[in-house]
Design a protein around this nucleic acid. Structure first.
Length: 471
RNA sequence: GGCCACGUGGCGGAGUGGUGACGCAGCGGAUUGCAAAUCCGUGUACUCCGGUUCAAUUCCGGACGUGGCCUCCA
């Protein structure tokens, strides 16, 4: 950890970039809102997963891999899940139907996300495994007079928190002026939100002091972050849309239940994305899931490697809006391919350290694009065979979550590398005999199999040949 | 109606009060049996209108445009 860079992160709470100082450098704690498991995750969902994975990697680099705890929850209780269960499994008992939906969707999410080159979070808690913790929190909020029971619901009373609205920068009066949704009569203040609601017989529910019911949306994150990270922790992240009401309400719950002045020190939010210049929506027919990109030709007529999707997402700073497009994927693919080509042949070593200039750029509020410029520079040096640039490039690529050969070799080894090596050797022999017709025939033959050959000279000036899978 | 982002060359995309990053594509050259790859070089920009300033793409104000949030959407 010599020369530890100073991290700077943009904090939504203060709307400024701030120097980051962990509460406890021996255990840096980060919570990110994860998926509600009722359907395939779309590419918008992929953005925070990738962005905060990058931050996780950076934190591990700076503070040590064993000194960072990253929690990403899985929301498996939600009315959308209930609806999906009823739709997909109308003949099953509700609990069984729900279990089918959430298990299947969760497995799909984890598989999609690992293809994006993301490390698994330290803990991935499920909401349904933390119902007791949520009830404890709700009971405490009632005891402290921050919550009340009305019309069968337990509600949080926003009037009991003087600085409610700090994160989103909106005050309650402004909010109400143009509210679109009719106000429930039983609420003391229209902005009060549900902590616990009653369940009908055909809805999932848990016994509680307030009757059989289920938790409100926000309480799970308050409960799970406390359980795994404590009452106050370092970083809380998620999409821009979560600032209000979700994160605002999490803060209200946690701080009021614990009597603390902060839930997380730093609140980070990634920007939204559009698809080909339009907002992504099912009605426009441009709704794209991670799995569509990984497995089908939904965009560009063929599947894309998860690392290409990762790079396409990181090419733009995490707080900026992204226009996700075919052109972007193509550019990401060629960029990653160039890096991998430049790193080709580097020895793979687990101990290799990432380039300091790349780390430094990332340390400035995750400026991946500047980091990629530094990486381009290293790649150029590697192509000129300068110093240990090749190994440095390889180590840095791995640090950033990219493999060294994903675009250069076929995933499933559909072609025997040994077979290719033989053909290359034969062609080189033909070339040495000036038998160009034979040499070109071999090259064409391989080209038809999707293998591209590239001749180059090694350090001694001898002609050599490299190959890669081409699209 | 309220609040919040964003608007840079053909495309992607950083950044800065004063010498127009960087990548892709384009163009020129080197290398090559021919290719590909690689290397070297190169053109084009800061939505509009005011203001502050010796000087603004960069600061301030306004307009226009795009997107987001305003009770469960990353």
């Amino acid at each position: 950890m010599s020369g530890t860079p100073q991290l700077t992160l943009y904090n939504t709470l203060t709307r400024t970039k701030e120097a980051f100082t962990p509460l406890d450098p021996s255990n840096v704690r980060m919570y990110v809102c994860g998926p509600t498991v009722y359907d395939f995750a779309h590419i918008g969902n992929a953005r925070p997963v990738i962005v905060f994975d990058l931050l996780f990697r950076l934190l591990r680099h700076v503070y040590g891999a064993d000194h960072v705890t990253y929690v990403r929850n899985i929301t498996d209780v939600d009315d959308k899940i209930n609806a999906r269960a009823l739709r997909d499994f109308p003949d099953l008992p509700l609990n069984e139907a729900i279990r089918r939906v959430t298990e299947k969707t969760e497995a799909q999410f984890l598989s999609d996300v690992s293809a994006l080159g993301t490390l698994p979070p330290t803990v991935q808690p499920r909401a349904t495994d933390n119902i007791g913790e949520m009830q404890t929190l709700i009971a405490e909020l009632i005891r402290r007079d921050h919550a009340y029971n009305a019309a069968g619901e337990v509600l949080f009373a926003v009037d009991t928190m003087p600085d409610y609205g700090q994160l989103s920068g909106r005050n309650l009066e402004d909010n109400l002026a143009g509210a679109r949704v009719a106000v429930d009569r039983h609420k003391k203040n229209p902005a009060d939100f549900v902590l616990w609601k009653q369940s009908a017989d055909n809805e999932p529910g848990w016994d509680s002091p307030w009757g059989r019911g289920r938790p409100g949306w926000h309480i799970e994150c308050s409960a799970m972050s406390e359980r795994y990270l404590g009452q106050t922790f370092d970083i809380h992240g998620g999409g821009l849309d979560l600032i209000f009401p979700h994160h605002e309400n999490e803060i209200a719950q946690s701080r009021c239940a614990h009597g603390t002045h902060a839930m997380a020190q730093v609140w980070m939010h990634n920007g939204f994305l559009q698809v080909e210049g339009q907002k992504m929506s099912k009605s426009l027919g441009n709704f794209i899931t991670i799995n569509d990109l990984l497995q089908t030709g939904a965009m560009g007529g063929h599947a894309w490697h998860g690392e290409v999707l990762r790079l396409a997402m990181l090419m733009t700073h995490y707080r900026e809006p992204i226009d996700f497009s075919l052109k972007r994927l193509e550019e990401a693919e060629s960029k990653l391919r160039n890096w991998q080509q430049a790193a080709w042949g580097a020895e793979i070593s687990e101990s290799g350290q990432p380039d300091a200039s790349v780390v430094k750029e990332l340390a400035d509020d995750l400026n991946f694009h500047r980091a990629s410029v530094a990486l381009d520079f290293i790649a150029k040096r590697a192509n000129r065979n300068e110093g240990d640039a090749k190994h440095c490039l390889a180590a840095t690529l791995r640090f950033l979550g990219f493999s060294l050969d994903s675009l250069l070799t076929s995933d499933e080894g559909w072609e025997e590398p040994a077979h290719i090596a033989t053909a290359i050797a034969e062609r080189l022999a033909a070339l040495n005999n000036k038998d160009f017709a034979r040499a070109d025939a071999i090259r064409n033959e391989l080209a038809e199999q999707g293998i591209a050959l590239m001749d180059y000279k090694d350090e001694t000036g001898e002609r050599r040949t490299r190959w890669e899978v081409k699209r």
